[in-house]
Design a protein around this nucleic acid. Structure first.
Length: 286
DNA sequence: CTCGGCCTGCTC
DNA sequence: GAGCAGGCCGAG
């Protein structure tokens, strides 16, 4: 679900609500009979999570690509939201969220009770999300595998060209590869390619230096604007205060197959590249 | 690199 | 009932 702009929005909202508070109680809601990977991960860490989180103070909330990091006074908790992961934070007590049954519901896997009293809920319908306590070197190893932050200084047209050079794979697939640039997902990859007027099927090695410059700028502009609008809600993205994003109204191609291209008016297309639905304009993107 | 698998829920 | 959904990992 969440790509960089959504995770950044979550980070900003969460930061306001949890930094400086202590974790008073850790509630892991792991169904006994399921052994999904999320639950296996949690079960493996269950005792560790409880003992290492309880009593800790949350010092900061960081983001790297699509990962959230809760810095504690001792250690850190890394959270990846997968496709449908959500974080809610609210004063303790049953939490009404967008017409859902009160939280915690059957998809709520972790509840952190904080001083305040404040509650943080981790909810994930498809259970592709991950939650891990990691050491310094583990965090380093994990993040070392990621490419540059698209809004950071290390990301340039040259780094993009490096990621594309010699690659036969379509540029769309390369943009989804987190080693090339870290934080783009399916929505923003399609949006950035449209803004750069580049056909998503173009092999990486055929991207010209000029196109790399345009695409670099398109990626930055798209992500910055999406953060300004607090992310995209297609179906189940909500921020920790259960507010929808605002960028879905500004998408130019994603989720609009058959609708007129905002640039030329011809119907937008949808196909599959790298097993992902890909939206583009056959006339504008070459 | 691409593919299938991991999950639940929604739409056709 | 099939296919699809904002992500990633491991196998080939």
């Amino acid at each position: 679900m969440p790509e960089l702009p959504e995770v950044e929005t979550i980070r900003r909202v969460l930061e306001e609500k949890v930094v400086g508070r202590k974790i008073v109680k850790v509630e892991l809601r792991i169904p006994k009979l399921t052994a999904t990977r999320l639950h296996r991960d949690l079960r493996g860490q269950e005792a560790v999570l409880r003992t290492r989180l309880t009593g800790r103070r949350i010092a900061a909330v960081r983001r790297r690509a699509k990962y959230l990091v809760l810095d504690l006074d001792q250690g850190r908790l890394i959270i990846h939201l997968g496709m449908t992961g959500q974080i809610f934070a609210a004063p303790a007590g049953p939490l009404p969220v967008n017409g859902l049954p009160l939280l915690p519901d059957k998809h709520t896997h972790v509840v952190l009770r904080l001083t305040g009293p404040m509650c943080v809920y981790f909810r994930d319908i498809r259970q592709f999300g991950r939650l891990r306590l990691v050491s310094d070197p583990e965090e380093e190893r994990l993040f070392a595998r990621l490419g540059p932050e698209p809004l950071g200084r290390a990301f340039s047209p040259q780094t993009l060209r490096q990621g594309f050079s010699g690659k036969k794979a379509p540029v769309k697939a390369l943009l989804l590869n987190q080693q090339v640039v870290a934080g783009l997902g399916n929505i923003y990859a399609d949006e950035a390619l449209f803004r750069a007027r580049i056909h998503p099927q173009t092999p990486g090695r055929r991207i010209t230096p000029g196109q790399a410059r345009t695409l670099h700028q398109a990626i930055r502009q798209t992500l910055s604007e999406a953060i300004r609008f607090r992310g995209t809600t297609m179906s189940d993205y909500y921020d920790p205060e259960s507010r929808k994003g605002g960028f879905q109204d500004r998408l130019q191609v994603y989720g609009r197959p058959g609708e007129p291209c905002p640039n030329c008016g011809r119907p937008l297309r949808k196909s599959r590249i790298a097993q992902r639905g890909t939206h583009w304009c056959a006339h504008c993107q070459k």
